[in-house]
């Protein structure tokens, strides 16, 4: 059963109860407990196609609660807590959604060392995945989101989760936090895109979340094989330019981009090495989304066909 299949009242009753609302997000199950209706409404919109989980082991037990004590009277705030621990300072109550997303990122990056976790967007077509590793501001979120809106399978805009045992990519197609100008860019790019409320003045400026594409969510347990690594850089007015990268250089770029390369030890080295050896590696400078997607469509069809 999906989140959108039950009424909001029932959803709120579940999330408000002691057993919480358990949602399947990629390979993880999150138990969310909250009384905050406004937050839950946004959550239920952005996560509408995600499965409500029953009879599965919960990985993260997250509560979104108001602080207790005197602080609750000063200013409406919300606290993210996991297993009773509160790793962050409270956020303003109306920023509960970005706090939840940020907190869940933190939980995954800290614990899920069964994966090499790249800081990357990931999309897939014809069984071939493209990894877009990059720093924030490079446009990897916007690019991955745009590809997701044009029929590519969207795996993630943030975490390239490389399974330690076999190097396959585990999808985690969560809503995409679009920042500042990107919000309008995506709205113009695809007028039917569902974008949640605007959150002004976060640490990253104004943020709004793009609802995850339905098909991608439904295929979240289907892993993908990496075929290309593209380091994107958005440059206003630039022509779409792909530049091939030397293997050793791509290795250094990819390993230093991972959240837990050091923690993964030898496995980390082997996974990066295998990805580099099996993928074509490029630097990409772009400004026109439609043009990049056209070229990527052509490249992915070409990719690997020489070997046949």
């Amino acid at each position: 059963m999906k989140i959108k299949d039950i009424s909001f009242n029932l959803l709120a009753r579940k999330a408000g109860g002691s057993r919480g609302l358990c949602v399947s997000i990629g390979a993880f199950v999150v138990r969310l407990r909250t009384q905050e209706k406004a937050f839950l409404r946004t959550f239920s919109l952005l996560y509408q196609d995600f499965q409500i989980s029953t009879d599965e082991l919960v990985d993260f037990h997250i509560d979104m609660r108001r602080p207790s004590g005197y602080r609750r009277w000063l200013k409406a705030q919300v606290i993210f807590s996991i297993d009773g621990h509160t790793p962050f300072e409270p956020f303003p109550l109306d920023h509960a959604m970005p706090l939840f997303e940020w907190g869940l990122n933190w939980c995954i990056a800290r614990r899920a060392h069964q994966y090499l976790i790249l800081h990357a967007g990931v999309v897939e077509k014809q069984g071939k995945a493209i990894i877009f590793p990059a720093l924030p501001g490079s446009g990897k979120s916007t690019l991955s989101a745009a590809l997701g809106l044009r029929g590519w399978r969207f795996l993630s805009d943030e975490f390239g989760m490389v399974r330690g045992s076999d190097g396959l990519l585990q999808p985690i197609p969560r809503p995409v936090p679009l920042k500042n100008e990107s919000i309008q860019v995506i709205q113009d790019f695809s007028p039917s895109a569902v974008i949640g409320p605007l959150f002004p003045k976060t640490r990253k400026g104004t943020v709004a979340h793009l609802q995850s594409p339905r098909i991608s969510v439904e295929q979240s347990r289907q892993l993908a094989k990496p075929a290309m690594i593209i380091f994107p850089l958005y440059q206003s007015g630039a022509e779409t330019t792909f530049k091939s990268l030397a293997k050793h250089y791509a290795f250094l770029k990819l390993s230093s981009n991972a959240f837990n390369y050091e923690v993964m030890g030898l496995t980390g080295f082997e996974r990066v090495r295998d990805i580099i050896n099996s993928c074509a590696c490029y630097n990409l400078i772009y400004s026109d989304l439609d043009d990049v997607i056209k070229q990527l469509d052509a490249m992915i069809t070409q990719e690997g066909s020489d070997d046949l």
């Binding site: 030397a246 050793h248 080295f269 090495r273």
Partner: peptide, 13 residues
């Protein structure tokens, strides 16, 4: 020591 050699440069762990 695990070595991956790509021509003029090698990466080792």
């Amino acid at each position: 020591i695990v070595i991956e050699n790509w021509g003029e440069n090698a990466i080792i762990y």
